[in-house]
Design a protein around this nucleic acid. Sequence first.
DNA 1: TTGCAGGGGTCAA
DNA 2: TTGACCCCTGCA
Length: 294
Amino acid sequence: MNYNDYKLTEFENGIEVENIRDFNLVHILECGQCFRWIKQDDGSYNGIVRRRAANVSFKDDKLYIKGANEKDFRDIWFEYFDLGRDYSLIKEKLSKDATLKKAIEFGYGIRLLKQDFREMLISFIISANNRIPMIMKTIDALSKNYGDEIDTFIGNAYSFPGYEKLSKAVLEELEMCKGGFRCKYIKETSGVVQKDDDYLLKITELTTENARKELQKLPGVGPKVADCVLLYSGTKYDVFPTDVWVKRVMEELYFKREASLKEIQEFSKEHFGELAGFAQQYLFYYARENKIGR
DNA sequence: TTGCAGGGGTCAA
DNA sequence: TTGACCCCTGCA
């Protein structure tokens, strides 16, 4: 799949992209990987990506992106929605596992978004022992207070703040964003990473195992957050972020008993290999929507 | 109305 | 290995 496989039509203030497969906005935007998309009454979503705001909707095999033109699609959205990847092939491979097949059929339109590494790092530090609505509120407040105002067709919006702004923020002011005990981690981690211009490059070049270790040196980053950052920034796909939902669904569907995080990690590595990150998304969505283990 | 448990982990002891 | 942790929601 590449850029030319999609037929683009520009309309006033947006584009229509035809021939999109394996795509469902609810599955993609509500499977816990992103925090800046808000569902509208008509079923479309408003969101902020990089320094752009957009409204996206999907019908039949057509993706509509308001606030974008053909060039934006090529520069931003094609990569963001991972449209170069053949998800039918991934699903086919993973569906050989009968258990996973069920989860895949349930979340058939899931895709892994390729998001900004810095935004993922800070966002998932915020996610620790937190709930999605709160995470979204904190990220929104951080952006309003420390990001840049960007001009958009849906009114004013704010880009996600850079490391420099966050590292220099006064802690007491950061705490106005309701990040609680995580605020000091945001500030400290931003400071560490900001000093190292090539941090992302360094992480990218490491093996997955070493990348996880390196990320965990940052304040507020443990194994789960490290895996989320790697996966949702599209840096490494052979990770298996294991939160309470994934732990529960693995115990219920595979182990049939309680299992340690270490056991689950080893199992996913052996069982799902290079595709572990994709498997995790289907399992997580299946577990949460069906309230597995609750 | 008030009070309390607990949440999509991490850290420190 | 275990408890504390910000803040908010749900529920008694």
